Amino acid sequence: MNDKIYLHETIQITLDNRANYFKHMTVDWAPTMKDRKQKMVGIFGVFSSTGSWPEVVNLWEYDGWSGLAASFDFETANIEAMRDPFFSEWSRKAYTLRHQGYDRILIPADFSPTIDQLIAMGRIGHRLYYHERISIRPGQAKEYLSLMEKEWLPRANELGMELLGAYRTAGRNDSEVVVIWAVRDWATYATIEEAFDSSDNVAAWHRKTDGLAVDWRREVLCAAPLAPCLTGKHLAEI
């Protein structure tokens, strides 16, 4: 059972500043995370050959809705700026590194691991990740995730895809699922891609979800050097 809540951020980077943003979002942000009651799961760069670039994805974990609300309460205490003093100062530099973003609040499936569980089971240090955003028939995201756990998760594991997280997007008509898979290396990636094109097991999964999954998009992410899902250490420990 995973009772956490997650914040998923898609960030558009300005010019050649992805590495600078990685540092600003980890080393420079770490001192304020305790006040915000948050943990970082990962910070990733979208691999340019598979999606938009230069783009970064951040994934944060909170202690349920109350933890997320406490973080938002801290952030918005200044009603004029809608951000606390640390965030305001941090943002001055951030605006030179990134220019736009889009956020989602995510609710995890029961079988989706927390960052502490990922570290404890040693599911860290992967070279790449699949980042899937799946459009679901309205009202059926829970059904998709339940089916995924029973039908697709074992087959995906056999292919070399290890689950980092499976979520449904809040604030929508239960119509979007976000799934992130860890892939150990690029050789495994090649095997998986071949299977997506020709495997009977993959084809069977797609048939099973036909009409339930309306559309989906898969791109490859690479974790930033200090991402906890890569290092096995929380930012507070760096």
Rank of each mutant, 00 (worst) to 15 (best):
L159A: 12
E151W: 12
I192H: 03
M33L: 12
R172P: 00
N2Y: 03
H126M: 13
I180K: 07
G160C: 03
D110T: 14
S199Y: 03
S66G: 04
I79A: 14
Y129F: 15
S49G: 08
F44S: 01
E176Y: 06
S146M: 12
W65Q: 08
T191V: 12
R172N: 08
L128T: 02
R127M: 08
L147C: 01
I119K: 04
A223L: 04
E193Q: 15
S112L: 08
Y21G: 00
A81R: 13
A19R: 08
G51Y: 00
K208V: 00
I105A: 09
T114I: 04
E158T: 05
C229G: 04
A81K: 15
D174A: 14
L106Q: 02
R172I: 02
L163I: 01
P108I: 02
D200Y: 05
L128R: 08
N20Q: 14
I134S: 05
R104N: 09
M25C: 08
R92Y: 07
A70Q: 13
E132S: 10
T209N: 14
A187G: 12
G64W: 04
W53Y: 15
G139D: 02
T191N: 14
T209E: 09
A223V: 06
A170E: 08
Y21W: 15
R123H: 13
D200N: 09
F74M: 12
E132L: 13
A224N: 00
I11Y: 01
L235W: 06
L106K: 03
T96P: 04
M33A: 04
I134A: 07
T10V: 14
W29P: 00
A70K: 13
G122M: 01
V57K: 02
L153D: 07
E176D: 04
M33C: 07
D63S: 12
V220I: 14
A213G: 11
Q12M: 10
D3N: 14
S91F: 13
Y167R: 01
W205D: 10
E237Q: 11
A187I: 12
L7M: 11
N173V: 05
S198A: 04
G139K: 06
R184D: 13
R172M: 08
H8I: 05
R36V: 05
G42K: 00
V27M: 06
T114P: 08
L7C: 07
M1K: 06
M121P: 05
A223T: 03
R123V: 11
S135K: 15
V41T: 05
H99T: 06
R104H: 11
S71Y: 02
L59F: 01
N201V: 11
F44T: 01
K23E: 09
A170H: 09
N78H: 12
S49H: 10
R217G: 07
K93D: 03
D103N: 15
P225I: 02
A223N: 05
E176F: 02
I124P: 02
T14I: 10
R133L: 14
L212E: 03
F74R: 15
F196H: 13
H8S: 13
D110F: 14
L159N: 02
Y130A: 10
K23P: 02
E61R: 06
V46Q: 03
V177F: 07
I136E: 00
G45A: 08
F111L: 06
